[in-house]
Design a protein around this nucleic acid. Structure first.
Lengths: 208, 208
DNA sequence: TTAATAACAAACCAACTAGTCTGTCAACAA
DNA sequence: TTGTTGACAGACTAGTTGGTTTGTTATTAA
């Protein structure tokens, strides 16, 4: 064990804060923000009230930090950045959806999409949550619409396709499918609806 | 005021139970089951603990009753029964979606779909809720798949359409769209994605 | 070396919340 | 008329929960 590691294991503010954020994120994923318990996070991190309220002034601030520092970066990394490297939109989007399907089938089948969970729970309850969440959706939508727009310009997608509309529809359909699976015990609905989503994507393709 | 009405206003067990169920349903719609407070229901109904625990043994039992006696009948009436009278599936489904869009735009834009809200919140948390909810989705899916199947048999829908898959996709897409709108302050996303959903439905039509 | 401060530990508190308990009153049967 | 029971009223309780306070120790700047 290095000297830094030993030192870090004694007192490391960033690590402590990060541990709280990570556990809180997982708890919110399972139980929602309202179901999240500060004491529960402390138990799972082996920390105390003193540590928690040193880093966060309230449960609400923790919620905001989870969105800003865990959820948003994850969405950026996992869903938005890959869109920017897409060259053949239809094929690549279908591949992305299949990746996502397999990943979600394996890990998140019963937990659903963390962003959508928070949206459904918190949007009507708290304006400070809603705006943060809406910004992330908007960013995602923008990125997808731009990718589709490029696809149209480069002749991969039919010219009458409206990227703005299709981007809204694709995100909504995907989240809808994930949401449906949360109440079934298997991923059957995932595959069944997935076939249609793929068909829809194919219908946008401009044949050459 | 009639004698019955006076009598009813003094003591009417069914009315009392119904009032609790209705208010609880509205509270769950806004705040979720976890955000629902028994005391809050009592305040809004001007009832007391005695009344509540005379009719329900626990908050959980209230939750079950809301699903069984309010939510399920509403879904049946609003979404499932109309499917059985459909003769020209594509046109009628598009009309249904437009009806729904206008209704939801007016009333439920920020509250979302009560069934989907409960699904997202409670499925991972409580098995007794999950199974009740899954049964309702399954019933809805069955009814929609049957309608599509009839459409195929009667030559309104392309013969290569798989009703089972399309039914899953349509429900998921619709719920996804409604869910997206919860975090925006307007129904723009509703209309934008709706155009694509309509296009998709049109693509299923068998031209004659 | 030392003073100041950041990073915690942990006891404590006030408000809240589901659920209990005892009692009251209306309705209906005998 | 009266006894029984269903339908409540409302005070009370035990446990929970977010948040506070006081104290302690590691870290770092001077």
């Amino acid at each position: 064990m290095s000297a830094e590691a030993i030192k870090a294991s004694v007192r490391d503010a960033d690590a402590t804060r990060g541990k709280i954020l990570q556990v809180a994120f997982e708890e919110i994923l399972l139980k929602g923000y309202q179901g999240l318990r500060v004491d529960g996070v402390l138990q799972k991190t082996s920390l105390t009230k003193g540590a928690f309220y040193h880093h966060f002034s309230s449960k609400k601030e923790l919620g905001h930090a989870v969105i800003d520092e865990v959820l948003k970066p994850w969405i950026d990394q996992r869903w938005i950045l890959p869109l920017q490297h897409i060259e053949r939109p239809i094929d690549d989007l279908i591949a992305m959806l299949k990746d996502a399907r397999d990943e979600i089938s394996a890990n998140e089948l019963h937990t659903g999409c963390p962003l959508n969970n928070l949206t459904q729970e918190m949007s009507p309850l708290d304006e400070s949550f809603r705006t943060r969440i809406a910004d992330i959706w908007q960013e995602w939508h923008q990125a997808l619409a731009s990718t589709l727009q490029r696809g149209v310009e480069q002749g991969h997608i039919k010219p009458d396709v409206v990227p703005n509309n299709v981007a809204r529809f694709l995100i909504a359909a995907m989240e809808g499918i994930i949401g449906q699976c949360k109440c079934y015990m298997n991923d059957k609905a995932f595959y069944e609806a997935g076939v249609c989503l793929q068909d829809y994507l194919e219908s946008l393709r401009l044949e050459k």
